[in-house]
Amino acid sequence: MSSSSVHRSVSALVPLLSAAFLMVLVEVLSLVLAPFMDASGYYAFGAEGRYNPVSTLLYIVLILGFTLVLLLAIRYGKGWVIQATILVALASTLYYVFSAVLGAYTSWYAPISLGASLMLTLVLCVHSEWYVVDIYGVLIGAGAAAIFGVSLSVLPVVLLLIALAIYDAIAVYHTRHMLTLAEGVLPMHLPVMLVVPAKRGFSLRRMESVGAKGANGGREAYFLGLGDAVMPAMLVVSAAVFSPAPPVLGWANLPSVLAVVGSLLGFAILMLVARSGKPQAGLPFLNSGALVGYVLGCAIAGVAVL
């Protein structure tokens, strides 16, 4: 193999490894944030809903309702509705992240958290380049995964991951409304997708569509839906919080750690499938990998899966 071929192979591998790193970073950071969320009592469905499988249904209803609002806004050209809705949701999540952490150290956590979340959101609006979107997205993704991970025990999370994997496959391959949503949101440069440049000099602000090609052909960037990182991370957190398996790495137990490994294997398979250049549903691969890793971890640790 010539040196130029090796260089091309390495160049093609770097963005894929970067995308995998971002996904794992969301999972690890969610584990770091989870104890703060738990101590602050930030439960999405209240303390009584943590073991209730019905909470899974409520989560799905929220996702479907949110998706419907965004699709209607895209259909009727109401871009400001999409931007306002998403920015409020993102800034609110960021506030919870900051307040949970700062609340453990200072009584001034509320105004500091509010100021920090508004400042970062302003930076996002003013300079929405890919690295700003990724930093914001990782914080939001980890915060959301931590909140829902401590809010739902393993059974509701497992049901949720299975249901959303099926929904994602339908939304991408059949109704294709997830692709419509991605194309509609991309020009707004909002952190609903993690962005990994495939070439030097890439600018998200100049990119027109998810499938856009560079001047010399070839992919400009890889996109990983933020939900694709959040859903496996929810299982990682829930396993660490609710599984009786003993800790093996920090406060993370074997089911939690192997869920991370499983999601990485699922990501590798996803990238092999995505080589065709066609958009792929991420959750069937990522959720399946995380679930297999979790079950294997439970078997090795000698604890019940559910």
Rank of each mutant, 00 (worst) to 15 (best):
L72Y: 08
P53C: 01
S40I: 01
E27H: 14
N52C: 02
L71I: 04
G79C: 07
A12E: 15
A44K: 12
V10E: 04
S5R: 15
S99W: 06
I112Y: 00
L16V: 15
R50M: 04
S9Y: 05
Y59T: 12
I63D: 00
R8I: 04
R75K: 12
T93P: 14
L87Q: 08
L58K: 00
L33M: 04
P35L: 04
L102S: 02
I82Y: 03
T85F: 12
A19V: 05
L68V: 02
F98D: 00
R8M: 10
G77F: 06
L13M: 10
I63M: 11
V54T: 11
V81I: 15
G65K: 01
L25A: 15
Y42A: 13
L64M: 11
K78W: 14
A39G: 07
Y96K: 08
A12Q: 12
L114E: 02
A39K: 14
Y43A: 02
Y59S: 05
V6S: 10
G115R: 01
V54G: 05
S107W: 04
Y109V: 00
Y43G: 00
G77T: 07
S11D: 12
I60F: 01
N52L: 09
T56S: 07
G77D: 06
F36A: 15
V81E: 09
T67Y: 06
L22K: 13
L87T: 13
I82Q: 12
S92N: 05
P53Y: 01
L16M: 14
L31T: 10
F66H: 07
Y109Q: 09
N52A: 09
F45W: 11
A116N: 02
R75P: 02
A73D: 03
R8Y: 05
L64W: 06
T67I: 13
D38M: 05
V88G: 03
L17H: 03
L87M: 11
A91D: 10
Y76L: 12
V10T: 07
A104G: 07
S30C: 07
V32G: 08
G115L: 15
A19W: 00
Y51E: 05
L57G: 13
L57T: 03
L72F: 10
W80S: 13
S92V: 09
A20V: 08
F45T: 06
I74Q: 10
L64T: 09
A34I: 04
G46R: 04
S3N: 09
L25K: 03
A47W: 02
L25S: 14
L22V: 05
A44S: 11
L33A: 05
I112S: 01
A116I: 04
G49S: 04
L68F: 07
L102I: 05
L72V: 12
V81R: 05
V32P: 05
F36V: 01
L68M: 06
Q83D: 11
L72A: 09
I74D: 12
S40A: 15
V69W: 03
L25W: 11
G41C: 06
D38P: 00
A91C: 13
P53H: 03
P35H: 03
F98N: 07
L33W: 02
S18V: 12
G46P: 00
T93M: 09
A12P: 00
G49F: 03
L17I: 07
I86L: 15
S113M: 02
S55F: 00
A104K: 04
A73Y: 06
M37F: 15
L94N: 05
